[in-house]
Simulated assay, not measured.
Amino acid sequence: MVPDAEWVRIRRGLRFGQVFEGTVVNVPRPGVIGFFVDIGLAVGGFVDVALLPDQGEDWPAEGTVAEFEIWWADSRQQIRLKPADSRYLRRDFADYVERFRPGWPSEVGRPVPDPGSSVRR
């Protein structure tokens, strides 16, 4: 963990849809919880199971280098990512976005809100 002030500084530089090249560093339970990604910042990245294919064997393996987009950042010191490579997205990703994050296309490029802001995920 980094000091809160550092997290605030990092967050201020984040934009929805911003792309980072990252390395998958931990896939603790393929098909169950998601995986962790090192994107070269002092805080880690995480890809949630909800964005990934149903079958864990379709997820990138530890050590895979790929591009990831900023999907969300909440009060936790962790950047939520989505894979930029469609092979690593759930098959019905467009439908998922329509149901759960319909504002996503218009959010791309906007700053990630500060914790406690009224903007919802």
Rank of each mutant, 00 (worst) to 15 (best):
D95Q: 15
V27T: 10
L89E: 04
E69R: 14
A66L: 13
R80G: 14
I33T: 13
G31H: 08
D54N: 12
V24H: 03
D114Q: 09
V65S: 07
V24S: 05
V32G: 00
L81Y: 05
P53T: 14
M1W: 00
T23Y: 04
E62T: 15
A66W: 00
R12M: 06
T64E: 12
R99T: 09
W72Q: 11
V108S: 02
V108L: 12
G17K: 07
M1Y: 03
V37A: 05
R120W: 05
D4C: 00
V108A: 05
D85E: 13
D58R: 15
D85G: 02
R91G: 14
I10D: 00
D74R: 00
D114G: 00
R87I: 08
A94M: 02
A42V: 02
P60I: 03
V49Q: 11
V25M: 12
A5S: 10
F46L: 15
V47D: 06
Y88N: 05
G116D: 06
E107F: 09
Y96I: 05
G45C: 07
F46C: 12
V2I: 15
G103V: 04
P30D: 05
A73V: 13
P102V: 14
G63H: 08
R121I: 05
F46A: 10
D114M: 11
E107Y: 09
S117Q: 04
E6Q: 12
R90A: 08
R76T: 10
R91F: 01
R29C: 00
G103C: 02
D58L: 15
G63A: 11
L51S: 07
P83N: 04
R91Y: 03
Y96G: 01
V119K: 11
G34R: 01
G116V: 11
R12G: 14
A61C: 06
G109S: 06
V25S: 12
L41R: 10
G22Q: 07
G34Q: 03
S106M: 05
P113V: 10
F16L: 11
W59T: 09
D38R: 07
P102Q: 12
R12A: 15
G103H: 05
S117G: 10
V65Q: 13
D48I: 02
E62K: 14
P30M: 08
A84V: 14
A73I: 07
L89R: 15
I70Q: 00
V112I: 15
V8D: 09
G63K: 03
Q18N: 02
P28I: 06
A73P: 01
I70H: 01
Q18G: 03
R76D: 14
S86F: 04
V65E: 10
F20Y: 13
R99Y: 05
A84E: 03
I10Y: 02
P60S: 04
W59G: 08
F16S: 02
K82W: 00
E67C: 13
P28E: 06
R87P: 08
S86Y: 02
G45Q: 01
R101N: 11
V108T: 01
D92M: 05
K82C: 09
V43G: 03
R91P: 01
R29W: 09
R80N: 14
R91L: 07
V37E: 00
G116F: 11
S75F: 09
V8R: 11
P60E: 02
D4Q: 08
D54E: 15
V27N: 07
E6Y: 02
N26T: 09
Q78P: 00
V65R: 15
W59E: 03
R99A: 14
P102D: 09
R121Q: 06
P113S: 07
A61F: 05
V108K: 06
F36K: 14
